[in-house]
């Protein structure tokens, strides 16, 4: 579980945001900034009828994107970290493409893969996979040589080296990288959901905006943020649980 301090910290953050939000809405008194309490009540009213389906779509896309990035990125990073030859071939590619703003590739991805789910997932994967590859690789490179030597002297196979050393040693850093990549992933999700779909929180927020329904729009923003926070906390908790040895 998260420590009590962290929960208290999150609660404190939430309170400050609500107070500031309320203060601004009270001072300005304009429809573009409704009071947070009106928004919360509105969420309760419309969640099941109007928002649930959008939330499920977004959740599916973000979890899918993270899963694909881990399934491809982590093994690739491990191979690069463990085998110098693979690293020499792939590292320059990763370094060269890392600073390219992948979001700018969206039109190309959409032309190639259409407006459907594939291009949305691809955008998320394209953007977070690099962080995961680099972190996995560096985590493997950072394992002290003595640990490998102990295993080599025991005649451990490559597979045993991976399961006994490389995976457990790098897991904490991979989880941290995933957690940090999550913020970016949610932004990308929002962006991709504003095109070519009628489902997803991004669509819901932009659609409410077009319809000048600010309560709906705010409800969408709150739920999208809450979704991000929940995934973030879930990774944090599993990190604590899996890496209790730290």
């Amino acid at each position: 579980m998260l420590s009590r301090d962290k929960w208290l910290g999150a609660l404190y953050g939430l309170l400050v945001v609500i107070i500031l939000w309320y203060a601004v809405s009270w001072v300005l008194k304009i429809p573009i900034i409704p009071s947070p309490f009106a928004v919360f009540i509105h969420i309760i009213e419309i969640f099941e009828s109007k928002m649930e389906i959008h939330l499920l779509y977004s959740l599916g896309r973000i979890l899918g994107g993270i899963a694909i990035s881990i399934i491809i990125g982590v093994p690739l990073g491990y191979l690069m970290g463990y085998f110098d030859k693979i690293d020499k071939v792939l590292s320059p590619l990763v370094y060269f493409t890392y600073p390219i703003p992948k979001i700018a590739l969206l039109p190309i991805i959409m032309l190639l893969f259409g407006l459907g789910e594939t291009s949305k997932l691809m955008m998320i994967v394209l953007i977070i996979i690099f962080q995961i590859i680099i972190t996995s690789r560096d985590a493997v490179k950072g394992i002290p040589q003595e640990i490998f030597r102990s295993l080599q002297s025991l005649g451990a196979s490559k597979l045993q080296t991976f399961t006994e050393v490389i995976i457990p040693a790098s897991l904490p850093e991979v989880l941290t990288a995933t957690r940090l990549a999550l913020g970016t992933a949610v932004s990308i999700l929002f962006f991709t959901e504003t095109f070519g779909t009628e489902f997803g929180m991004g669509y819901f927020i932009m659609d409410s905006w077009m319809r000048v329904n600010y309560l709906d729009m705010y409800a969408g923003i709150v739920i999208l943020s809450f979704m991000g926070f929940c995934i973030f906390s879930a990774i944090d908790i599993s990190e604590k649980y899996i890496c209790s040895w730290r």
């Binding site: 002290p144 003595e146 640990i147 030597r149 102990s150 002297s153 025991l154 005649g155 006994e164 050393v165 457990p168 040693a169 890496c243 040895w245 730290r246």
Partner: peptide
């Protein structure tokens, strides 16, 4: 095939086990 016991200066223990 051989059984080799290796003991190093910094112990070579796995911190996650």
């Amino acid at each position: 095939t051989q059984r080799i016991g290796l003991i190093l200066q910094n112990y070579g223990l796995l911190p996650w086990k």
